[in-house]
């Protein structure tokens, strides 16, 4: 079987004159965690719905697990777990009843269904509340129930639309751990979000959506390289003559720029991690090194910078 779990070519969706997704090419490999990023209305959800066969593409082709979601939606949906942006359950039913319905829709027999339900409830720590109506559940519990439902069908691919939205930090952290566990089990995960640091924490690769197009794609360091140019920001805190220190740091190979910030702080922008070299340079220049750290490029920076540029271009 092919290594490609999702393969989209020229995928396009138009609603009337509005182009929601514009000739998208996307490849996601087995076992990968892929993040779809982008502002609201960029076409993330529409893309997801097309992957599931819940809406038909206007043009282009898409293969999910080697299947065509337009002609083989049942096979696709039997293998792909989908967590929509807003998880609506039947509130008057218990967690267990809600899961049982989904299990039956997936064609599981009664015994197998109950076995798997117990298993997923246990795994997500919902066993104690399994027989309470979902109406009494908190947002975090609903979220976990949503994951439980997705795991019920033992999916090969899990698609999550804005899974961490509205979760408190602790619940979000636990949720990200679930995503990592899925990856460890070899499940491919596609998640969309605009909460960047969370995406950064779990995703192997990300794709940045803007107005229906995927404008950037790659791992976070790759994107940083593309958008920010020099990827490494090194903070140096040192006592000593500032002009001599700045000159020494500027002289480092692969250093792109040096800025003096307030007090004894300096910021070196470099093409690679220059911490060791910077320490040496500071000492040689007669300074006393107090602190040294490298700032990982954050997706927030990439995102902010990218859209700054886009708007700049648009304005010009």
């Amino acid at each position: 079987m092919s290594d490609l779990v999702i393969e989209a070519k020229g995928l396009t969706k138009r609603y009337g004159n509005v182009v929601a997704v514009d000739s998208l090419d996307l490849e996601v490999h087995r076992g990968e965690v892929f993040g779809l990023l982008g502002p609201n209305g960029a076409g993330k959800t529409t893309t997801i719905l097309m992957l599931l066969g819940l809406t038909e593409p206007t043009a282009g082709t898409v293969r999910v697990l080697g299947l065509d979601p337009v002609l083989q939606p049942l096979s696709v949906k039997a293998r792909v777990g989908y967590m929509p942006e807003q998880m609506g359950f039947y509130d008057e039913l218990t967690a267990r009843q809600n899961l049982f319905y989904i299990a039956r829709l997936n064609g599981l027999g009664r015994e197998e269904a109950h076995r798997r339900i117990d298993e997923v409830l246990e795994r997500l720590g919902l066993s104690d509340v399994a027989d309470r109506p979902v109406a009494t559940f908190s947002r975090g519990m609903r979220q976990r129930l949503g994951v439980a439902e997705v795991l019920l069908k033992r999916p090969q691919l899990v698609i999550m639309d804005e899974p961490t939205q509205g979760l408190d930090p602790e619940v979000a952290r636990r949720f990200l751990q679930i995503v990592r566990d899925l990856k460890a089990e070899g499940v491919t995960v596609l998640l969309s979000s605009h909460l960047l640091h969370q995406v950064q924490a779990v995703c192997d690769r990300v794709g940045l959506f803007y107005r229906g197009r995927m404008v950037l794609e790659g791992s976070v360091p790759e994107l940083a390289q593309q958008v920010l140019g020099s990827a490494y920001h090194i903070r140096v805190e040192a006592e000593g003559p500032s002009s001599a220190l700045v000159d020494a740091l500027k002289g480092l190979p692969d250093a792109v720029g040096v800025e003096k910030e307030d007090g004894n702080r300096y910021r070196v922008v470099a093409r690679r991690d220059l911490r060791a070299e910077a320490a040496e340079a500071v000492v040689k220049a007669g300074g006393r090194l107090l602190g040294l750290e490298v700032e990982m490029p954050s997706l927030d920076d990439i995102y902010a910078r990218y859209f700054q540029e886009v708007e700049h271009v648009a304005a010009a």
Partner: peptide, 17 residues
């Protein structure tokens, strides 16, 4: 009510037409 409960996409993401 399936729309307002937001349960429709969840149900239709299961292998049924």
């Amino acid at each position: 009510s399936e729309f307002s409960r937001r349960s429709l996409s969840r149900i239709l993401a299961q292998p049924i037409y």
